[in-house]
């Protein structure tokens, strides 16, 4: 189990970094979706089945669709994007930052003798009761959030009457 976990963790990190480093927005979005899928695998391995399903379907699916539709709305040539946004120049220090940050974190973990371990007993089979009984407030918040999403689509995406 540890092997699969470690591999998918590494994949997650790599996909995230790739999605930030890649100069094409489309590639970025796809790498993000892949990272999301990796996170789903990770969650599944850790026993969070429901969360994994939602993660894969909502984040990996829905968000990617939103991104791609937004990207396709702004169809500018690839070269122009490179010139205009100076991505290469701006991201020059990114790998170094990541490496330095990683080393720093490992050093801190070593210096502080920091270690985390999972609890021995895991309760993973009452998700429905927990979600529907004790998190009702969150569900109410979700409903309102989705409502706002609907209103936002209505307000922000609709063409204005005057323009026609």
């Amino acid at each position: 189990m540890n092997t699969i976990l470690s591999i998918s963790l590494a994949c997650l990190l790599v996909f995230c970094i790739l999605s930030i480093m890649s100069h094409s927005l489309l590639k970025s979005a796809i790498f993000l979706a892949l990272a999301s899928a990796m996170l789903g695998v990770l969650m599944y391995m850790m026993g969070a089945v429901w969360a994994a399903v939602i993660e894969v379907s909502a984040c990996s699916g829905l968000v990617t669709v939103i991104f791609i539709s937004a990207i396709s709305l702004s169809n500018i040539k690839k070269d122009d994007i490179h010139k205009q946004y100076e991505d290469k120049k701006r991201m020059r220090w990114f790998p170094i930052t990541m490496i330095v940050g990683g080393i720093l974190l490992i050093v801190i973990a070593l210096a502080k003798d920091f270690t985390l371990t999972s609890a021995l007993q895991q309760t993973t089979d009452h998700f429905k009761e927990v979600f529907w009984n004790t998190r009702q407030v969150d569900i109410m918040g979700q409903i309102v959030t989705i409502l706002i999403g609907g209103i936002a689509v209505f307000v922000l995406f609709r063409e204005e009457q005057e323009n026609k």
């Binding site: 998190r135 407030v137 969150d138 918040g141 979700q142 309102v144 959030t145 706002i148």
Partner: peptide, 10 residues
Amino acid sequence: FFSLYVFLDV
């Protein structure tokens, strides 16, 4: 606290 965060996002 988590519900507070949810409503914060609302």
